[in-house]
């Protein structure tokens, strides 16, 4: 698409959307949000990016192949489940630790890791599909 307005606004819009998607992912455990929704927002951002600036630009911007991202996410989610096995509790039991960082307690958990895995699978898989379809549109 050759719209000048879109191409001008797109970078800003995309940056905002990606930030928002991560925000939605992180707050998901306590307020509406989570890996699925955050991932979908990121996919939408990348899809817009693709339409505005071409698929090649997007591919360069995300560095990794979308499917590799999805695969890493799936691996991450699986590992998050396996942590609990190592702690002698059943598969997929949530494990929480609260290390202090600059005097501030930061709750970390395997559940967080799992949700991030979900996020990456959604981003990777759906971006891969959308980009592949957009690519076909260009030729």
């Amino acid at each position: 698409m050759k719209s000048l307005i879109l191409r001008t606004v797109a970078p800003l819009l995309i940056a905002l959307m990606l930030m928002f998607s991560i925000f939605v992912l992180l707050r998901g455990h306590n307020e509406p949000g989570g890996g699925f929704i955050g991932g979908l927002i990121a996919v939408a951002a990348l899809a817009i990016h693709g339409i505005a600036n071409g698929v090649e630009t997007v591919r360069r911007a995300i560095v990794f192949d979308p499917l590799a991202i999805a695969g890493a996410g799936l691996l991450m989610a699986t590992l998050a489940g396996l942590i609990s096995l190592w702690m002698q509790v059943p598969f997929m039991t949530g494990i929480w630790i609260e290390p202090s960082l600059l005097g501030q307690k930061v709750p970390l958990s395997s559940v967080m890791l799992f949700d991030t895995g979900v996020y990456l699978v959604v981003v990777g898989a759906l971006t891969g599909v959308v980009l592949a379809l957009e690519e076909r549109g260009e030729d």
């Binding site: 306590n30 989570g34 799992f114």
Partner: peptide
């Protein structure tokens, strides 16, 4: 499960598998 959003807790924790 230390989560206030019950829907998300079900998805990532209770029914994580």
């Amino acid at each position: 499960a230390h989560g206030a959003n019950v829907v998300n807790v079900i998805i990532v924790d209770f029914r994580g598998t």
